[in-house]
């Protein structure tokens, strides 16, 4: 976040992102309890399906209408070869505005950066950044150190490959970890580059409360980055020690989602 809201948006007026077909997964509560809808946004290489595994149903069980969208080129959405962060944020804001009520945006990994961009174009009721990859060279250094063979190709436009051990804790049965890792696709080369260099997102409109959650043992996002991200939004991160990067798929997926929903239930958000 830096600078102010830009209200002259010639580029967005002159070249709006091309419309695409988008995958949206959903789980709805039995009755309307008046809770706000949640829109989950996966990180690079992942799709809405990652949230359909556990979190959507769990949130619906607690009374929240829960949705997840795959930005173009991800999951079952239409391909988005040259897509940039702007297109991904467009996909998220499109789906948020289509919901019946003001939504809470929940972004995971680089999806948190997409959400940060989206917050400048949609006054979300609240936002949650889960294991946020907000870009810059710090995370790149960490990734190079931990998994050089998966990371270096990304520098040349190839896919970024995160290893099983970067993504999950050892508590997750190996066959599941393999299956989840195999399902992963990739973000566009341009978007990968943008992770390193991008114009910082404009300030969020509508001043939503923002929660940062993650694991100090995440091997993609260093603990320091979590604290920094939380500080940017004026808070401290919620931490789930012992978990991997993929909080929504790891063995103890229930703890973070419960904590997030508790925060929403308790906060001024409702």
């Amino acid at each position: 976040m830096s600078g102010g809201t830009r209200i002259i948006r010639s580029r967005e007026w002159a070249r709006p992102p091309a419309p695409v077909r988008r995958e949206v997964r959903r789980a709805l509560p039995a009755g309307d309890e008046g809770k706000p809808p949640l829109l989950f946004v996966p990180g690079f290489g992942s799709g809405a399906g990652a949230f359909a595994e556990h979190w959507l149903d769990h949130a619906a069980g607690r009374g929240f209408p829960a949705y997840a969208v795959s930005p173009r080129g991800h999951g079952l959405s239409a391909p988005g070869p040259g897509a940039t962060l702007r297109e991904y944020a467009h996909d998220v804001v499109q789906e948020a505005a289509a919901l019946p009520r003001r939504a809470v945006l929940v972004g995971h990994g680089a999806g948190a950066l997409v959400v940060a961009y989206g917050l400048a174009r949609y006054p979300a009721r609240a936002a949650v950044l889960v294991s946020p990859v907000l870009g810059g060279f710090g995370p790149l250094r960490a990734a190079l150190a931990r998994n050089p063979f998966g990371t270096v190709p990304a520098l040349f436009g190839g896919p970024l490959r995160l290893s099983r051990r970067q993504l999950f804790s050892r508590e997750l049965p190996e066959h599941l970890a393999d299956e989840y890792a195999d399902r992963r696709g990739r973000a566009s080369a341009r978007a990968q580059w943008q992770l390193l260099r991008h114009r910082p997102p404009e300030p969020a409109v509508g001043d939503p409360p923002v929660l940062v959650a993650g694991s100090p043992d995440d091997r993609v996002v260093p603990a320091k980055a979590l604290t920094e991200a939380a500080r940017r939004y004026g808070g401290a991160p919620l931490l789930f020690p012992g978990m991997g990067h993929e909080l929504m798929l790891d063995a103890r997926w229930r703890e973070p989602i419960d904590a997030i929903l508790d925060w929403l239930d308790k906060g001024s958000v409702l």
Binding site: R9, E12, H90, R121
Partner: peptide
């Protein structure tokens, strides 16, 4: 057209 017509924080549907 749509991008010039919509509220800046509530886009009209792509469809």
């Amino acid at each position: 057209s749509k991008p010039m017509s919509q509220y800046p924080d509530f886009p009209m549907p792509d469809a």
